[in-house]
Design a protein around this nucleic acid. Structure first.
Lengths: 271, 271
DNA sequence: CAAATAGTGTCTCTAAGACAATATCAC
DNA sequence: GTGATATTGTCTTAGAGACACTATTTG
């Protein structure tokens, strides 16, 4: 009698070669820069966490944080663990971006990556302190399409500027993949992963939910709007923005004062 | 001198245990049923391909087609290969649904799955002939939420009816995962994969692009509308539907005649 | 003619964009 | 007061939904 229990007790996974599996994470944060004028509002920058590779391959180049999937954890847990190791902060959200599995993507061998985008609030990063170590930095991100339909991904931190060039390949279902024309000295295929993560992030930011992950618990509508504009790289008239988000927020009785102009009411995310 | 070349020539992937990786595919098709009345239009059914498991575990139960990732192929190529093996048809589209990696999801051991939704046109399935073998069938799909916010997934083919029950767990980024309350005799965690695939499909169908994958090259607007309604499980007034899609189609000079009512113009997808 | 689908025109309502106007603070 | 942001109100326009109406075919 061949029961499932009998089968399993004698079952051994075949000896076919298996790939190594990693989770790579594009962790985004929005930093508010110091004001130039005492009464002007702060400027926002979208930032992405990169780590400098200490060993071969791509030694000394910048890469997304990531690491190998370990037995007993899910791939999402693996992604969160990697972010926690680099930043000492747990991200508030995690969003799948895609599986990158081209056989030649990693010179070390057969390694496939499940990629995630995550969002970390500026608050929590400031609490642990921006790490001034050389090997992990929050790069300022810009990502735009030029006239020739190429995408320019620019990552900068101080004097370090990485400029990658990609093209969009349309696949079915309205999804797109990115092909790397110039990796901009980013390790592996990480330029393509970052481009895909940014696209996912922008897509998700259309429904305002996502934006809250970047914000503290209480925020002004202008701060909310600036975060949205920073992510989407578009601008909206304040009057219209307020109307659009009115269903997603509840007002508090608190105001931000002492900014050299009319105090702004603080809002909170509506349940 | 420790160059990258030196490093790679002596590099060996560590002996950490590695997971087996599979691609599972939820392949959808829309079948038009025979008319009951000579002048009535055909009814559509959304169908999903399931295969009956020939061996343990879950022997004799229905499962999504899928298989192990092989060295030298991408995970998407693997997914397409599996569909081709089962149906002898290459799908017209492939859409990532997620990575399923719970450590206990497969009783055989550590096996993670990258899941895809794909669409196959009725035309191409009819060309190869609906396989009447018992081990691969196109099940009629229904997927709805009840008053208690549970999702009922019902798959039927002839006398075989599989009823699964799931709940939606909201995660950040507006995404959701499904947890299985009752697997409905589907193998592994495939009920959750199917629910996620249906959600992805419906989401993608909002931008009409996707719908074309279900249709032949030339189609009437009513056929287009019925496919949309079948996928989304909603109905729209014809006048409004025509307006909505008018930007996505171009008219041809051909008409469908002999149906017992006014001939319908054939349209084609606009580039 | 009857029954069915194909296709058009138009009204309403909502939401987004543009823009003008007012409110309130720190200096 | 000045210069900045905060906030409200209103006009216009685009698009979705509802619905009435006409057109065309086959048995």
């Amino acid at each position: 009698m061949d029961t499932e229990k009998d089968f399993l007790s004698s079952y051994k996974l075949s000896d076919y070669e298996r790939p190594s599996v990693t989770a790579d994470v594009a962790a985004f944060m929005i930093s508010s820069e110091d004001k130039t004028d005492y009464r002007r509002n702060k400027e926002n920058k979208l930032r992405l966490l990169l780590v400098k590779r200490g060993g071969h391959p791509f030694k000394g180049m910048w890469a997304l944080p990531g690491g190998f999937l370990q037995k007993g954890e899910t791939i999402e847990q693996c992604a969160l663990r990697e972010i926690k190791e680099e930043t000492d902060v747990l991200p508030v959200s995690l969003m799948p971006v895609g599986v990158f599995s081209a056989p030649d993507r990693d010179p070390r061998g057969w390694i496939i990556s499940s990629a995630y985008a995550s969002v970390i609030s500026e608050e929590s990063v400031r609490q642990v302190g921006m790490d001034d170590a050389d090997d992990a930095q929050w790069f300022i991100v810009s990502f735009d399409r030029n006239e020739r339909d190429e995408y320019l991904l620019s990552l900068s931190y101080g004097d370090t500027v990485l400029n990658a060039v990609l093209t969009e390949e349309k696949t079915q279902f309205g999804r797109s993949e990115f092909r790397i024309l110039d990796s901009g000295s980013l390790a592996f295929d990480h330029a393509a992963i970052i481009a895909a993560a940014l696209t996912s992030l922008r897509h998700a930011a259309k429904s305002f939910d996502t934006i809250f992950d970047f914000l503290p618990e209480k925020f002004t509508l202008t701060a909310f709007q600036k975060v949205q504009e920073t992510i989407m790289n578009v601008s909206v008239l304040p009057a219209n923005f307020r109307r659009m988000v009115s269903g997603y927020v509840t007002e508090t009785d608190e105001f931000v004062r002492g900014e050299g102009h009319r105090p702004a009411r603080l809002y909170r995310r509506k349940e």
